[in-house]
Design a binder for these strands. Structure first.
Lengths: 239, 239
DNA sequence: CAACGCAACATCCTATAGGAAATAGGTTCG
DNA sequence: CGAACCTATTTCCTATAGGATGTTGCGTTG
């Protein structure tokens, strides 16, 4: 069976070492970008055919994704992508982010190394270039940039456990509606700059405050997304 | 192939609905109880034979366990159980617990329902009976009781995300050396009572303080475990 | 016309087989 | 005596086939 070599993976980038790992990344991207719509059923065999692999590694990747909270598994009914965040879940998410990332920013101000401070500052400045782009692509680049900035701070805090928790939270954030707040990019850039400045200065209190202010503002910016579409907040809503 | 019905699962309790789920719980228990020693290699086929299932569900369970942080996967070298917590990781764990569980206790004091307060109080009182027992069994019951108490509070806080994060943290705690601190049970019971009382009273500030005091004391109690065995803290330590 | 029951279908779940890579042990050379 | 190389074994990784179960559509009946 030498077909293994002949196959050319469609959407996976030059297989790392194990197939399951690549499949995991591929499916994760599909879910993050809503190519697999939230709440939709996920057909294992179809996915395997699409990715040109056998169902086994797909199943393995799905199991990891379930632990990440991106898909759910109903015992004898298969996998489904996690539905969109409800308003309550959205609020909960930002409450926890406020707690975790606030403390993280404070720690980063005191624990970060010189090179880490430099990278954080650079990333905060890079956010300006986001203006260019068109529609969806713009949204994607902005989201990635924002995630990178926050992860850089989480890394600088010097707590692997905190960083893991925050990363997990961020993947949940992608389950939010694809909504690009008007003037969100400039405001975000300014707020990022403030956070970066406080961390550079080594001011723990100021960094934590700046981060909390940023998250509160971001939460406010994203709130209108719930009014755009009258999406099913609850399975049997009455309003 | 009717052997599926004839098989009598060795250490799984009356299969739930999917085999992979049972296998997941079984392996999780094996790791938690150090029946699979930390840092050891995990042979998929051997595990499958031991549990009387095919390697496929074992692989799936292992993938979930990896996301939980209980096992690690080296690309072409198989799975290994996560090694024991180093001193730095232990400190990190309690730092994050202090942050998360402190806030959680405070929220529980204001958000908990009447029945939740009642259950928390009952669980705090039940801790007294731990005195009975012998060696390992005593350790296991105590650990379970403590985990239940903390989870009850996390549930009462009304934040699913916070609860998930804390649960994940607790599973990491089980990677600590199996060490039963002298007089740990009575002290723990008293501290649990204080936390429960504050939550019952609805005093958010007092609940958070009591929880932080409890965790600080627990951290102190477990510290001697690092001196007992001169375990490899770092791969190439110099001290 | 609606609700219930039945049957066919699709899908998931598990088991088995075979190819490829890494690890371990022995041997040989410097 | 030590280190490097080679070989054999073990183990992992992927693919495929078959049985069990949930779901869906249609027909029938009240």
């Amino acid at each position: 069976m030498a077909q293994q070599q002949a196959r050319e993976g469609r959407l996976r980038p030059a297989r790392r070492l194990t197939l399951a790992e690549d499949v995991y990344e591929s499916i994760k991207t599909l879910v993050m970008d809503h190519i697999l719509p939230p709440g939709e059923r996920v057909n294992i065999d179809a996915l395997a055919r699409e990715l040109d692999v056998s169902p086994t590694p797909v199943r393995e990747a799905l199991a990891r994704l379930e632990a990440d909270g991106l898909v759910r598994k109903r015992p004898l009914s298969g996998y489904t992508t996690t539905p969109l965040l409800s308003r309550a879940e959205f609020d909960d998410l930002f409450d926890v982010r406020l707690l975790l990332e606030g403390a993280t920013a404070g720690r980063a101000a005191t624990h970060a190394t010189a090179v880490q401070r430099q990278r954080i500052s650079a990333e905060a400045g890079a956010s300006i270039d986001v203006e260019a782009g068109d529609g969806y692509r713009r949204h994607a680049t902005f989201t990635t940039l924002d995630a990178t900035f926050h992860d850089l701070i989480a890394e600088a805090a010097g707590s692997p456990l905190l960083r893991d928790s925050i990363t997990r939270l961020h993947s949940h954030l992608h389950l939010h509606r694809l909504y690009f707040p008007p003037n969100g990019a400039p405001d975000t850039t300014i707020e990022h700059q403030r956070i970066a400045d406080a961390i550079i200065a080594g001011d723990s209190r100021a960094a934590a405050d700046a981060m909390r202010a940023h998250l509160t503002a971001a939460r406010e910016r994203h709130l209108p997304a719930f009014d755009r579409l009258r999406a099913p907040e609850a399975p049997h809503g009455s309003a």
